[in-house]
């Protein structure tokens, strides 16, 4: 146990001369994100884009699925890692308009580990795999886009056609989708 009084008696105003450099110390978020990014192990269908390599907290993830409903599509997600990371999950939005049961027109993504099931032990890599999985196994039981979910449950063929139509660009269910072919 320290004895503050004896240690601090001598310490008074103005005597606080720094003994070390004054570069601001790394935040816990920076320590973690450096680690996460350096150890990012992307599947070959995924790629990252860093508009500013000095800012590891803002980047994009591009997923080009090579199998499943979304084969041949190219989907861009924006990642924003806040100062509370990893206590709070990164904020992820889908920037590509996509016909998907778990992604809505505003780009909100319904992935459990991005919200209610986030844990600080998870990494950026876990999120990347989670997003990739969404394209391989869209989940109609927990929909964000209800219409797409209903089609997926009732007729997988029609769903597949709708997805491909949306990827090539065009109207599906009255909504226009921009072309996002790889």
């Amino acid at each position: 146990m320290i004895k503050l009084f004896s240690l601090k008696q001598q310490k008074k105003d103005g005597e606080s001369t720094p003994r070390t450099g004054n570069q601001k110390k790394a935040s816990a978020a920076q320590l973690r994100i450096t680690k996460d990014i350096n150890e990012l192990n992307l599947p070959k269908t995924c790629n990252t884009e860093f508009p500013d390599p000095d800012d590891l907290l803002t980047f994009k993830l591009v997923i080009c699925p090579d199998e499943g409903f979304y084969k041949n599509g190219r989907f861009v997600f924006s990642f924003k890692v806040g100062p509370s990371y990893p206590h709070e999950p990164p904020k992820v939005k889908c920037e590509t308009q996509v016909y998907h049961p778990n992604i809505d027109q505003q780009g909100n993504v319904c992935l459990n580990i991005l919200r209610e099931d986030w844990k600080p032990v998870l990494t950026i890599n876990s999120v990347v795999y989670g997003l990739q999985y969404l394209f391989l196994e869209p989940n109609p039981d927990d929909p964000l886009n209800k219409e797409a979910a209903e089609v997926l449950t009732s007729n997988r063929r029609v769903f597949e056609q709708n997805v491909q139509k949306a990827i090539r660009g065009g109207y599906v269910g009255g909504i226009y989708f921009d072309r996002c072919l790889k």
Partner: peptide, 18 residues
């Protein structure tokens, strides 16, 4: 990575191509 004048700076990251 490091911080210079309160801004983060990436010195070198070998694993991400970009």
């Amino acid at each position: 990575t490091t911080n210079i004048d309160g801004k983060s700076k990436t010195l070198y990251i070998p694993t991400i191509d970009v």
